[in-house]
Simulated assay, not measured.
Amino acid sequence: MWLHASCSLEFNIPVPTPFLLMLRPRSGRQQWVAREQYVLSPSVSVVEFTDSFGNLCQRLVAPAGYFSVHTSVEIETADVSDMGPGANFVEVQQLPDETLPFLYPSRYCESDRFNEMAASLVAGQAAGYDQCTAIVDYIRNTVTYTPGEGQQIISASELNELGHGVCRDMAHLGIACCRALSIPARMVVGYLESLEPMDLHAWFEAYVGNRWYTFDPTQVGLQGGRVAIAFGRDAADVAIYTQFGDPVNQLNMQVNVERMAEPPF
């Protein structure tokens, strides 16, 4: 399917402030970027670089006063994310080098605290994809999804105690349990066509069967167009914007995702 997705951010900046933005999706296995727009108002100088996870990042200094960022993309994406029941577990010594950072505990995914719990959740499941599915089923059945309420980032351990959270928090728990089983897992932030209420969305991917597969504890299935914007170890790596120095006032944020009737050409 073809999607038109956009994100608009508005700020009141007290003093010139350095920003790091992460709002440009890349073409990849299940998405192809056909056209983009990236508008800053007022216009400022931007330096783009690729971070250690392959994300496209933009550095800039926002001037004092009103400042806005508007990005949009026309992109072809899969109708349904690939699934792989039975996909095998990949022995650590056989994993590609680039997957290894996603095996370690991280700030919000304390996988070293989930060894016993993860093992109990997947008892009787074939090693690999089926274990990830059992973890997602546990999260979906025991954690209440509360979209729009998660202003403060919480870790996998904190979510497991609270029992309710947003998509980002539920992804943290899935990642932590997968890593506890020596399955590489990473956070993904992006757009989801069918999301209600509309916002940016977070899910996770696990590396089994020699490739990355999508898992989303907040959705019963994997239908609907997904657009991945950023990948990382947890939420600390995939913030769509980070500002440095004195806090700024975010005035507004608006996300829109629409299916296009035909390709944009």
Rank of each mutant, 00 (worst) to 15 (best):
D216W: 03
D237V: 11
N12V: 15
A126V: 06
V189H: 14
V136H: 00
A64D: 10
M117R: 05
P147S: 04
D216I: 01
T146Q: 08
S27K: 11
S45E: 15
R113Y: 13
I175Y: 06
F265V: 11
L222C: 03
D51Q: 00
A202G: 15
H164D: 11
L121W: 05
S41K: 08
L40W: 03
E262W: 14
M170N: 03
Q219M: 15
E193M: 15
Y66S: 14
A202V: 15
E149Q: 13
A171K: 01
Y104L: 10
G165M: 03
G84N: 03
W2C: 09
E91T: 08
G28V: 11
E149W: 12
A235Q: 08
P184V: 02
N249R: 13
G54E: 05
E76C: 05
F67V: 05
L173C: 00
H70M: 06
F89E: 04
C132N: 01
C178A: 07
F215W: 07
A64K: 11
D169R: 05
E262P: 13
Q125H: 13
A5H: 07
P184C: 00
T77D: 02
I154F: 01
F11R: 04
G163Q: 01
F231N: 12
G209D: 01
M117G: 01
H201T: 12
I75C: 09
N141K: 08
E161N: 06
M253W: 12
T71R: 11
T77A: 08
L195F: 05
Y213W: 03
P197M: 05
D51Y: 00
G54P: 07
D112A: 13
P217H: 02
Q94M: 15
N256Q: 15
P217M: 04
A156C: 13
A228V: 13
F231P: 11
N210L: 09
G124K: 12
L181H: 03
R140T: 14
G163I: 03
E258L: 11
Q250R: 14
L100T: 10
V188W: 06
E74R: 07
M170H: 01
W212K: 09
M117E: 08
S157N: 08
P16A: 05
A118T: 05
D79N: 02
F67E: 06
N115D: 06
G28K: 12
I175A: 03
P147R: 02
G84D: 04
M22A: 13
M22I: 09
I13Q: 11
T218G: 04
Y145F: 07
C109H: 06
Q31H: 00
S81F: 12
P147F: 03
Y66H: 14
D234H: 02
Y213E: 00
L121G: 01
V69Y: 10
S182R: 06
R259F: 06
N160C: 02
D199N: 04
A261H: 10
S68D: 07
Y207P: 05
I13T: 09
A127L: 12
L162H: 09
L100P: 04
L40E: 02
D79I: 02
E161W: 08
Q58D: 07
P263S: 15
A134G: 00
G245W: 07
Y207S: 05
Y66N: 14
G124A: 10
P263R: 12
P197H: 04
